[in-house]
């Protein structure tokens, strides 16, 4: 499905509704959500637990049928596709990344990465070379033949990302991709998703409540009680505390200091005090805000 018409957005959803249960017990998990996503764009969907993020993502990925509303992938309505066509569209055009990694336990790293290529006819041969390249790109060469049980969380998520990219899908959907990772690994994965969107001209939709990921987003959407609201106007200007490495919003920061023509922000008075005592050691580390 090439983009015949550049005006057609990669993914377009209008008026999505999903209700679970009936009568008094009915939950409007998603309630009238519309959004459009273009190639090369990173969209972040945030919201409190139970706000409908996963339900929304499931519908966008064709895994869950909306009760109302339309989803079009590259101009084609998912509702118009047969079950088999939807499965094929998922395999060929959508990459999935999950919080729980969801690797296939009996398959090696290489075989896991290759797996989606087996679901699209005629892809397998070319995909082998691509799988090798992705494994190198995601720094998994040493682990190529390992089984998932032998990998760390960060490695598993990188394998999952490589798997999501094997069929070169224009759309990547990620649900809490950093949810099970420590902050260092989480940041790495977030940067990786960002690069994937930019370098490969892919649309990436990330559902998360991880604040570290906000920096990589082009657009931030806030979901509450199944309703979406754009929070772009909510100004944030994230900076890193050069002493402890914590993220601090410039707009709300109260601890500030200047050094060598730069303005630095701090999480607390204690960090600021330390910085002032010897700024050279923190700046020399290359930590710049």
């Amino acid at each position: 499905m090439p983009d015949a018409n550049a005006a057609v957005p990669l993914l377009s959803a209008t008026g999505l509704v999903k209700v679970f249960g009936r009568g008094d017990a009915a939950v409007r998990a998603v309630d009238g959500v519309s959004l459009q996503v273009a190639r090369g764009e990173v969209v972040l969907i945030k919201g409190p637990s139970g706000s409908g993020k996963t339900t929304l993502l499931s519908m966008l990925g064709g895994l869950l049928q909306p009760d109302a509303g339309d989803i079009a992938l590259q101009g084609r309505l998912l509702a118009d596709m047969s079950q088999t066509e939807r499965a094929r569209a998922r395999a060929a055009h959508i990459g999935f990344v999950f919080q729980a990694y969801n690797l296939l336990e009996a398959l090696s790293v290489f075989e896991n990465v290759l797996f989606p290529a087996r679901l699209v006819s005629g892809r397998l041969e070319a995909a082998r070379e691509r799988a090798e390249a992705l494994i190198r790109r995601l720094d998994l060469a040493q682990r190529r033949d390992a089984l998932p049980a032998q990998l760390s969380g960060g490695e598993r998520q990188r394998v999952a990302i490589a798997r999501a990219l094997i069929n070169d899908p224009p759309l990547l959907l990620a649900d809490e991709p950093t949810g099970n990772l420590d902050s260092q690994r989480g940041l790495e994965v977030a940067m990786l998703l960002h690069d994937i969107a930019r370098e490969d001209e892919r649309a990436v939709i990330i559902v998360t409540h991880d604040p570290r990921i906000e920096e990589i987003a082009d657009r931030l959407m806030w979901l509450e009680d199944g309703r979406l609201r754009d929070r772009k106007q909510d100004a944030h200007d994230w900076a890193v505390d050069p002493v402890c490495g914590m993220r601090v919003d410039r707009w709300t920061a109260t601890q500030l200091a200047s050094h060598d023509g730069h303005e630095y922000v701090f999480c607390s008075a204690r960090c600021r005090k330390r910085f002032i005592a010897g700024p050279a050691s923190y700046v020399a580390d290359g930590v710049r805000s």
């Binding site: 499965a87 094929r88 998922r90 959508i94 999935f96 296939l104 797996f115 989606p116 679901l119």
Partner: peptide
């Protein structure tokens, strides 16, 4: 069950 759900999500058809 879990892996099969994953496989289905990744785009395996009913036939396969």
């Amino acid at each position: 069950m879990r892996e099969l759900a994953v496989i289905k999500a990744l785009g395996a058809t009913r036939a396969s």
